[in-house]
């Protein structure tokens, strides 16, 4: 029996998992050191909060630039070794992206588990206190009474998945940049500078409106990342009869799923277009 001329999908995927893992050792080591630092810090200071809204930005940045690390050093617009291998070029690129994604999810899962354990060990909380206030028996239009109690963290079990969906979307977008552009870092910096310039030039109220529409909208990145309704406005706006009702009102599985789907779809389309640039013909 003659051996097949080209390698199987499974063999290539397994090899790319190994290669990406080995290649990302410096980044993984840096992440482990950062986690170790946080651990030491909070073991000494106490009361660690596992899921803070501020971590959203970190997830976005980490997932986006993780894709750059996956493709680091590859000569994608030339005769790089990656393209010399006997696999259809588009398929090969997508397999590498998938291998990187598997590592991203693995690293994310370990990080989340570690942070949860850290919160439990330090007597901290799984989520911040700012997610809502309970105004028992208050009417919807009445003024807020003084001395409202702060709620315990409002976090649904499925919300632990939310950062993974958001990270997936950002990773796909980052991969599209890394794969489809000759100078992805320059493009990223350029787009950021352009955004900053735009915000500096247009009136402040327009900027505020745009940010609110982007951050608090049903398909916003924040919704995809956190599973909340977005905008962190629950403290002042939410009025509910019970804690459960408030919990139900501040988070929305359907909305999160829709937002995540939209962002992942956008990332996938961008990635497909980027990979298509490298097609066989």
């Amino acid at each position: 029996m003659t051996a097949p001329a080209t390698p199987s999908f499974g063999a290539v995927f397994a090899e790319q998992l190994r290669v990406v893992g080995l290649k990302l050792r410096p980044e993984l080591l840096a992440a482990a050191l950062a986690l170790g630092f946080v651990t030491v810090l909070f073991l000494r200071a106490g009361r660690f909060i596992a899921a803070e809204p501020e971590t959203d930005g970190l997830i976005v940045l980490a997932a986006f630039f993780f894709s750059f690390a996956v493709w680091r050093g590859e000569r994608l617009f030339g005769d790089g070794r990656f393209w010399m291998l006997p696999v259809d070029r588009v398929r090969h690129a997508l397999i590498r992206v998938a291998a990187g994604w598997a590592w991203l999810m693995g690293v994310g899962a370990v990080t989340v588990l570690w942070l949860v354990m850290l919160a439990l060990v330090t007597g901290g909380m799984l989520a911040g206190e700012e997610t809502g206030v309970l105004i028992a028996a208050s009417g919807p239009q009445r003024p807020l009474p003084e001395g409202l109690p702060t709620l315990p963290p409002l976090i649904q079990p499925w919300q632990w998945l939310a950062p993974f969906g958001g990270a997936t979307a950002l990773y796909l977008l980052g991969s599209a940049f890394a794969l489809g552009l000759r100078h992805p870092l320059r493009w990223t910096v350029g787009l950021f500078m352009g955004l900053v310039a735009f915000m500096a030039l247009v009136p402040a109220n327009v900027v505020t409106d745009l940010i609110q529409a982007g951050a608090g909208g049903p398909l916003s990145l924040e919704t995809a990342l956190t599973g909340t309704r977005g905008g962190h406005d629950n403290e002042t706006g939410m009025v509910a009869a019970t804690f459960d009702a408030l919990l139900e009102g501040s988070t929305d599985l359907g909305r999160w799923a829709l937002a995540t789907l939209a962002w992942v779809a956008m990332g996938s389309v961008a990635l497909a277009a980027a990979a298509w640039r490298h097609r066989e013909r």
Binding site: A5, T6, P86, V87, R89, E280
Partner: peptide, 9 residues
């Protein structure tokens, strides 16, 4: 151009 992977193999 049509069978790049097979050729490279």
């Amino acid at each position: 151009c049509r069978s790049g992977a097979q050729v490279r193999a």
